[in-house]
Write a protein that binds this DNA or RNA. Structure first.
Lengths: 157, 157
DNA sequence: GTATCTGCAAACCCTTTGCAATAAG
DNA sequence: CTTATTGCAAAGGGTTTGCAGATAC
């Protein structure tokens, strides 16, 4: 089990996405560029609403609809992925350039710790053999109470 | 890694829930009983809408609101848990009486295989120490292509 | 030029909630 | 009797979509 966050070498997210759009007969627009830059500049995890608000505050004006329309494309291009659904909203994180990691989330305060674990690769390998699946990815979310929230809970009881 | 589905011994879901309600000053109603019986009789995984429809077809008439209001209680009582969110709906499965398991899902056809793995317990234990969290539960979803869908994909290319 | 994309606002759809009537304890 | 629960219908709130104008290519 190790901490995470190494940045891989390679073409930029924009390069990848530009190529993706070209291959699919879609267009590279200033709006798309703005959104992608914002996602990859400032957010590790994000949800549409907070992304939108943070962009507005910076004077970057794109509509929410454009963000919503962009997200499936970014997922298809393997640049981001859904990580969890909470309080009615889907949360995403960017994948490209980051090693895959798992999430440890505090049920109370929603704080998130990231970790990765070599055993996940073993598990995937065994599943491949056992069920004859071609494994694409996994999502591991561990839910618990962080030390702060444990203390608070004790204080209340 | 082992296959799953063993039924543990012990009090029934209704007993557990009755006790839970009493402890919280809540009431045991025919509606609640009907819904719980239906959940535990026929569904391994379920979502509110299909549960509601299936109950209606059997002539069991409870309102959707009552189902929605019951679910958080069942989660709190540790009888069911959220397993994944798909196509705008949360999906649940019952936990009580079943060993915890993980899901291997085919991205193409949504078929689900269940498995459990002792390494998850190890991982939880290590996370407890490392981050000082009190671990409550985890959700592991592995996504891939089942053998049938692999064949289909090959045939098409 | 033409097909795609944008912003807007309305529509959608799952879920939650206010309310008056009902029923559990 | 008191307070929780029910069903209904309306409200919420995140996401999707129809449309007309703008724009990438």
């Amino acid at each position: 089990m190790s901490t995470n966050g190494k940045k891989k070498e390679g073409p930029s997210e924009l390069d990848i996405f530009r190529d993706f759009l070209k291959r699919h007969g879609m267009r590279y627009t200033p709006e798309r560029e703005t959104i992608i830059k914002e996602i990859f500049a400032t957010h590790e995890h994000f949800d549409v609403d907070s992304l939108y608000i943070s962009m507005r505050q910076k004077g970057l004006r794109v509509s929410k609809a454009s963000i919503y329309r962009l997200i499936p494309l970014l997922i298809q291009a393997n640049l981001i992925e859904e990580v969890f659904f909470e309080k009615g909203q889907m949360h995403y994180e960017h994948t490209y350039g980051h090693e895959h990691h798992c999430h440890l989330r505090c049920q109370q305060c929603s704080k998130i710790e990231e970790f990765s674990d070599h055993r996940m690769a073993q598990i995937e390998e065994e599943l491949t053999k056992r069920f004859n699946y071609k494994i694409l990815r996994h999502r591991l979310e561990v839910i618990g109470l962080c030390s702060d929230c444990q203390k608070k809970a004790q204080a209340e009881s």
